[in-house]
Amino acid sequence: MALDPALVGRGYPPSAVYEVGRQKIAEFADAIGAPDAVHRDADAARAAGYPDVIAPPTFAIALTLSAAGVVVEDPDVALDYSRVVHGEQRFTHHRPIRAGDRLVATPTIEAVRSVGGNDLLTTRVDVATEDGEPVCSATSMLVARGTA
């Protein structure tokens, strides 16, 4: 069934706090083969002008994809996840995510479209510290194949 255009603009409550740890950043950097010391060594990060180790630029997906999952599981959206592929991804960074950050992720439906029998769902997840400092936004376009 095609997605209802009235879903555009629907917002969801902020996620539980995600506390960013140094080990998680190092693990993610290892997984993408990023060699930089600023991901692993707090002294190197401070020498480069950061308060603590910083995450690679796509690290935010570890929080934002599960936050976008809340949208996919919304009964009014109810995309069949086994048919979903990732069509597009955008990040806007206000500053790098860093160890010690306590982050909340807030999803919004930005667009819905049906093209060639596929449903296209665009969600934006705004990531901020629990004190409200904006950190980044992640916009994901998901394609549900053959559902429209």
Partner: peptide, 9 residues
Amino acid sequence: PGALVEYHV
């Protein structure tokens, strides 16, 4: 690695 401010694929 902190220099990337906008990234779209």
